[in-house]
Design a protein around this nucleic acid. Sequence first.
DNA 1: GCAGAACCGTACGGTACGGTTCGGTGTGCG
DNA 2: CGCACACCGAACCGTACCGTACGGTTCTGC
Lengths: 216, 216
Amino acid sequence: MPAAAYDIATSRPDAAPEFSPRQQVVLQHALMLLVEGGEKALTTAGLARTASCSKESLYKWFGDRDGLLAAVVAYQASQVQFPSESGATADADTFRAHVTAFVEALLGVLFSETSLALNRLSIGQSNTNSNRLGHLLLVRGKHMISARARTMLESGRRHGLLKFDDAEDAYQVLYGLAIRDVHIRFLLGESASTAERDHKSQAETAVDRFYRLFGA
Amino acid sequence: MPAAAYDIATSRPDAAPEFSPRQQVVLQHALMLLVEGGEKALTTAGLARTASCSKESLYKWFGDRDGLLAAVVAYQASQVQFPSESGATADADTFRAHVTAFVEALLGVLFSETSLALNRLSIGQSNTNSNRLGHLLLVRGKHMISARARTMLESGRRHGLLKFDDAEDAYQVLYGLAIRDVHIRFLLGESASTAERDHKSQAETAVDRFYRLFGA
DNA sequence: GCAGAACCGTACGGTACGGTTCGGTGTGCG
DNA sequence: CGCACACCGAACCGTACCGTACGGTTCTGC
């Protein structure tokens, strides 16, 4: 019996997956192939060639091709880090700056080529395999970010800087104001306009509008 | 030399693709296969079986498999219709109701299983084939809707009901307020919550917030 | 009624890829 | 030294699917 594939059920969402350094290098090569050529470009033979490893090792480490894809998603999701928020609600200006920095980081992550490639991969597979990749990306990616954002917004509410009923609802509005339809357009292959490349000003206008809706 | 594949370059974006009734039936079967099983489920042999046609006819009509996929996208995009906007700016209330109806229709289209399936298909292929499908979906789908929305919003501005500088920017905000991260979550396989199924109230709150930002 | 076109169903070639097996190589350890 | 282990590279197998070819059938215009 071969080694078990990387399984979402046996790994807690908040536990970083532990891949050996060699495996991490291989996963980075897999990610490169995904970014430049999409899912079709990530073949086991091709990955073994570019990463200078044997197919036997791939199957020993990841079980099968689906396990490899899941490992790539899990690994990259674990690499994403957001700025800490400790004590960022000292006063109104620094809190607002912190919110803006959060949105800017969000734009930077979601619009990066690696994130777009992994989203394309997961979306393309979302109606097969009982949808492991989609769940993985949602649980390890979006839901983590959403939780982080909610605590940040609630902190602002506690300090009388924001005013809303449902933190999840407020976060979704902030997300919508910041992302709009840019994400889906990028996923479909459209390239960024010069204005859309300026994440800082994009974040500022989004936060400005957010405050006009939810500012205290 | 076989018949040419359906080619985006030879068809004007505003011209409805003319498929014979028989071909339209086949394309609807293809769409069914796509909705229930994703791209992997749409094989030429499988489509020929379920649509009761021969593979030879498929290749005569659509050139190759990519041409078939492009034809499915183009056909379904041509089927999407939005309510007309003639004389909907009579007074403030009817205009706002019209905007709300537009948003509700937008939600209905984007969150339909067929639209989600075609978006998944196009996104999955967006880094291959010089990205024909992504462009097709953007040009025949999103850009058409965006143009329609801009004229609607500018009509509201002419009548002194709305206030904004850039219609495209205003439309993107409306889009973001309405869609938020629901679209990407659905694309990743998450199922709709009961609140998210109520497109009417979703549209109303979105339009309410939009008016607080852009109302005159 | 007949010729030709369009079409159906099926069988087949070619190919790409997932997954397995095997021989060879380097390394750590008793 | 010799054994075990992990790994690499390559060959191999089975399968799924695209694209084509062909015989037989239905439709259409003259």
